[in-house]
Design a protein around this nucleic acid. Sequence first.
DNA 1: GCGCAAGCTTGACAGTGTCAAGTTTTCAGC
DNA 2: GCTGAAAACTTGACACTGTCAAGCTTGCGC
Lengths: 209, 209
Amino acid sequence: MTARKSRHHHGNLRATLVAAGVVLVDRSGPDALSTRKLAAQAGVSHAAPAHHFPSLTHLRTAVAAEGFRRFTAAMEDAMGRADAHPRAQCDAACRGYIAFARGHPGLFQLIFGGHDLVREDVEFCAASGQAAALLSRIAAPFAAGARDRAAVETMIWAQVHGFCSLMLSGQLAVADGIDPADWFLSLPGRAPVGSDAAHFPLARNGTAA
Amino acid sequence: MTARKSRHHHGNLRATLVAAGVVLVDRSGPDALSTRKLAAQAGVSHAAPAHHFPSLTHLRTAVAAEGFRRFTAAMEDAMGRADAHPRAQCDAACRGYIAFARGHPGLFQLIFGGHDLVREDVEFCAASGQAAALLSRIAAPFAAGARDRAAVETMIWAQVHGFCSLMLSGQLAVADGIDPADWFLSLPGRAPVGSDAAHFPLARNGTAA
DNA sequence: GCGCAAGCTTGACAGTGTCAAGTTTTCAGC
DNA sequence: GCTGAAAACTTGACACTGTCAAGCTTGCGC
């Protein structure tokens, strides 16, 4: 189905470019993305991508959207293999978060690293919105009111995201032989805390509830 | 002293390039950095920077080192204007952290955004080491043992850094009219928590100690 | 005053994104 | 089943990028 014979029309160029872009970013980082490289890899001329993406920024945005989908999938995957208990689900999501950042640093940095993206792109918004919705769902059991909910969401996200971000930028060295996710989950005072006593199997100081 | 007349020798090119680089990154983001642009701005030929920096990555690293120095200065400045109490110092450092991220998003992303940098550069290591040392000093009063100290450091840094990082990448919208630093400092469960009761003027649930 | 090294220039090269114009293919409407 | 128009792709060009190889200019130690 892909590139039957070697015709003038590729038939599926847009998807091919995005897929190749994901691989390239994953391997060589966000800055390695190049319309000409992807065009060559897809076997088309250097200007072909321009007919599917108005600019490199748009192509980068499409790759980032796919990155967001895989990011969400990483969390959902970890959650699917965990207990249904709210705290276990939250911990699992954090594990998925950290695993994605470690396994796909290029995509992680493309998504969160402040690169030039078309932030109002509908596909990108949908993909990032799904990730945000997942975080929101995880935070819900730990919050009473709307303000609590925003606060708990922010804390969960900020903590795990800051941990990943610092780890990737080399500012936070985790000792050899220690799994970063284990280390993160063992940190005292990790969110959610506060009004979540009912869903919190371990008390804040490490003693059983 | 700068560029006397218009001589062949600039006299202070290295420092001039870094200074112009800081301004450029501050204005237009890390990706706008270009040896030719800086050369033109300094009034020298396009290949002149190569005699002071082996590659663009080295120039970028020098700019990042200066960025780290200003980042540290922003925290120290806020701390200087705050009470000497450990908790007040920690809060002030967070305010400085957030103020720097908001005021200089380009430099913040250059430093922490996973860009290509010469991480073993001595000047860069010194600059980033000073920031880490400051964080360590702030965390010290809240930690009992060595493991606690690393954990508290990690939590403080991860929380505020994640908050800033998500804010800059547009994933975390702070309501209009609310100061992001105020909102962050008001979050329940913010580190340091745990063994810091003696230095914690407010109890964890918001009631006075 | 001389010589040499450092600092800077000029020119070139391969690579990039983007535009304009031309060619090929697909497909809807008759 | 043909036709014309639109979509898909190519070719060529342009300005821009980082980097290299030469050569020129200047300052400074001797």
